[in-house]
Amino acid sequence: MGLVGYLVEATDGEVGAIDRRTYDGRQVLVADADGALLQVDVNSVERIDHRDHRVYLGVSRGDLRRR
């Protein structure tokens, strides 16, 4: 199932959405509110809600790496 367009939620709030141009299936890159890309390690994903199109992380926004 593709995750492009899913919203990403860190433990301290929404990060952004998974972007088609940067999603490679192994690590997920998301665009945050100011247009910067954040790298998300797939091991930080706690759950995926396909009904609401959201990916929930077990880390804070500060734990994500800028790319």
Rank of each mutant, 00 (worst) to 15 (best):
M1L: 09
M1Y: 01
M1K: 08
L3A: 09
L3K: 05
V4P: 01
G5N: 05
G5K: 05
L7G: 09
L7N: 07
T11S: 10
D12K: 06
D12R: 06
G13C: 12
G13R: 02
E14M: 13
E14N: 10
E14Q: 14
G16V: 03
G16S: 07
G16A: 09
D19A: 14
D19Q: 11
D19T: 12
R20I: 04
R20N: 12
R20C: 06
R21I: 00
R21V: 02
T22A: 15
T22V: 11
T22F: 12
D24L: 08
R26G: 14
R26D: 14
R26Y: 13
Q27D: 15
Q27L: 12
L29E: 07
L29D: 03
L29G: 04
L29N: 06
V30D: 01
V30P: 01
A31H: 02
D32H: 07
D32M: 03
D32R: 04
A33D: 03
D34N: 12
D34F: 00
G35M: 04
G35Y: 02
G35I: 01
L37H: 04
V40T: 03
D41R: 06
S44A: 15
V45T: 07
V45P: 00
V45Q: 05
E46D: 14
E46M: 08
E46L: 10
D49E: 11
H50I: 01
H50Y: 12
H50P: 00
H50G: 13
R51V: 12
D52M: 11
D52S: 14
H53K: 12
V55M: 10
Y56F: 13
Y56R: 02
G58L: 06
G58N: 13
V59A: 15
S60W: 00
S60E: 14
R61K: 14
R61Y: 03
G62E: 12
G62N: 10
D63H: 09
L64E: 05
R65H: 09
R65S: 10
R66H: 06
R66I: 03
